[in-house]
């Protein structure tokens, strides 16, 4: 087995710890920014839904501002976002390099997309259910937690899956700020030295990671659908 691997991936097997380190960096970036993204995006997506015209907490001002801000951040390419946010990153994290330095841009890069996903997921919750809950005297908070989040759970799970997969894509660019990760591994050790087996290893590990995320997402969506 080891022999086969050494034949297929000579440079990878020479320093396998480089691959594991990169994977661990990608995982750290994805998990940290993914968790923060999930909480913030869910909150903002909910805010979009409830403040929209006809929503349970209709508020034109809040909706308009949020809508515009999300559009602006969605239109900024990630690499530019990293540069744009350098001072904020430094202020929040104390550094603008390494895994810590890329969390803030990753969050800013993924939250607007996820908020839209959540908003779309909640739009799929039948308005009739919200009305029924209102007619039963349910408070706005009750409607958010007991109707929107619960009934929208399968669609939110699907939206989360897509966003996390995008996030893995974004982490590949984190080499710009020395955060490492699989993208950096492929470029620094593979591309720069013309070692194609390193690039393939990065591809395979990334595909596996994405497949696992996809599988978990589908499972959650299926378990919450009745």
């Amino acid at each position: 087995m080891n022999e086969i691997l050494t034949n297929l991936f000579p440079y990878v097997m020479k320093k396998p710890e480089q691959l594991w380190k990169s994977l661990s960096e990608t995982l750290q970036m994805t998990l940290w920014s993914g968790s923060i993204m999930f909480v913030l995006g869910l909150a903002l997506g909910l805010l979009l839904t409830v403040t929209r015209e006809g929503g349970i907490l209709e508020n034109k001002g809040v909706y308009q501002v949020l809508d515009k801000v999300i559009n602006i951040f969605r239109s900024i390419p990630f690499v530019i976002l990293i540069a744009l946010l350098m001072n904020l990153t430094k202020w929040i994290m104390g550094t603008r390099i390494g895994v810590r330095g890329v969390i803030v841009p990753l969050v800013f890069g993924s939250v607007p997309f996820f908020a839209r996903q959540v908003d779309a997921a909640l739009a799929g919750v039948d308005k009739g259910l919200v009305e029924a809950a209102q007619a039963m005297g349910t408070s706005s908070l009750g409607i958010i937690f007991r109707v929107y989040l619960r009934e929208g759970a399968p669609a939110i799970a699907r939206g989360t899956t897509i966003t996390l997969i995008n996030l893995v894509g974004l982490t590949a660019m984190s080499g710009y700020v020395g955060a490492g990760g699989l993208g950096d591994y492929a470029i620094t050790y593979g591309y720069n030295y013309n070692r194609i087996d390193i690039v393939w290893a990065a591809v395979i590990v990334t595909v596996l990671l994405v497949s696992i995320i996809q599988a978990i997402g589908s499972l959650v969506a299926r378990k919450t659908t009745h």
């Binding site: 009739g128 029924a132 007619a135 349910t138 408070s139 619960r150 009934e151 759970a153």
Partner: peptide, 22 residues
């Protein structure tokens, strides 16, 4: 808040039933 209290005294049913699928 008071309205939500009063609404508990007023049940409502709909053409589309509006049951929670989950």
């Amino acid at each position: 808040k008071e309205l939500n209290g009063q609404r508990k005294k007023i049940g409502m049913i709909f053409q589309q039933f509006n049951l929670f699928a989950s």
